[in-house]
Design a protein around this nucleic acid. Structure first.
Lengths: 220, 220
DNA sequence: GTCTATATCCAGATAGAC
DNA sequence: GTCTATCTGGATATAGAC
């Protein structure tokens, strides 16, 4: 509930308590939250500053006071989901083997797909359009992260702990399967009779993905 | 090479041979091809009729002569990739078991990801934004198709030909893993040192996805 | 059927009072 | 820091000559 700070705001969007700095952070947070949703639902080109302002409950001009341009606001939204994913990957490193490490990684990514579907969609949209804004992240942080995880996977293979599979393609499969539940949530919901997945269905999704992938790499 | 009809056109976009009807089809095809690329690269909101016209080598006004609105042009683009996927699914039905059926389906979907990456991206974008234009397809054709395939999968399970997995989640995994190579091609390319996957790498991707999934469902 | 020129609208961004 | 009013560019779509 860390980011449920909208309750601290009046309907005019002014923070009602705390220091100036806190008020500023709270307003920024409200804008980022609204922007994540609008960018996810409409795409960068389809999103309008007016709509983001409406969702955040602020006049449009205030957005430009907090974020110089539409693009700088967008970039901050993309950075957020990326950092959330990076943190979730810690479980990968601390594991003693693939069953634990990859299983926990799938769990963590599925939880994020459930709790931050909009962030995931914004990321997907950004990458699909050629990563015009965060190409630098792909070439530095993401590439380093990927190579580091590939080393771990190759060690597990060498130690006979899992089948011999290409580490990159395995990682792509983990990203694809977990993020699909966020990025294509609307399609899944439609095929689920128009209703979002229930708690039980999410648990089933998690265990189904884990069981197929883990058995698929010779762990189980 | 069916759609390589741009060679029949002069630089002014006029068809140089054949009947009026043929000329019309050729121009329509050129517009659809350009539109698919531009919508994929910029999203619906970011795409402009001017840019599509430039890519197609036509004046902007001609697009409105062939397609009444930007949205109707977009809808046609989305319908195309959907129909391509539907045709590819025939291999699923004709198979005698999961090893053959699901293996062939993965092969077919991977080929489409390679040959129609832009169509796949347009579809993904459309679904991510809540399917404002093709929701009817999701609720009719796609739902029917999915339920039909689920019946086949359940039969294979009942016959002891594969492990007991939820058919829907298995289908989501097939879609996610195969389409990832189209939708996230830019990310994959970046992680591949900036180069697109080679022929050999595509073969490796296909066999890697197949081996993990098939082993994951207890086949092979 | 094809093109140039244009009408109309709406977006991002800013000025300036409070 | 917040808000109203406005500037300016660029988008969809159309009119009308050829």
């Amino acid at each position: 509930m860390k980011d449920d700070e909208s309750g601290k705001r009046t309907k005019n969007g002014q923070a009602s308590r705390g220091s100036r700095a806190e008020a500023r952070r709270a307003t920024e947070e409200a804008i980022l939250k609204a922007a994540e949703r609008v960018f996810a639902e409409a795409g960068f080109g389809g999103a309008t500053m007016q709509l983001i302002a409406d969702v955040a409950g602020l006049p449009k001009a205030n957005l430009h006071y907090y974020f110089e341009t539409k693009e700088s606001l967008y970039r901050r939204v993309v950075e957020r989901i990326f950092n959330i994913w990076l943190e979730a990957a810690d479980v990968f490193d601390e594991a003693s083997g693939p069953a634990e490490g990859i299983g926990a990684y799938i769990d963590a990514k599925m939880e994020i797909s459930r709790n931050h579907p909009n962030g995931s969609k914004v990321w997907a949209s950004e990458v699909m359009h050629g990563a015009p804004v965060i190409q630098d992240y792909l070439e530095t942080t993401l590439r380093d992260w990927t190579e580091g995880r590939a080393v771990i996977i190759r060690r597990w293979i060498a130690e006979g702990k899992m089948a011999e599979v290409d580490p990159h393609h395995l990682l792509y499969m983990l990203w694809a399967t977990t993020q699909h539940y966020a990025d294509f949530s609307h399609q899944i919901e439609t095929l689920n009779g128009g209703a979002p997945l229930s708690d039980a269905q999410w648990e089933e999704a998690k265990s189904c993905v884990k069981s197929i992938v883990l058995r698929g790499i010779g762990v189980s």
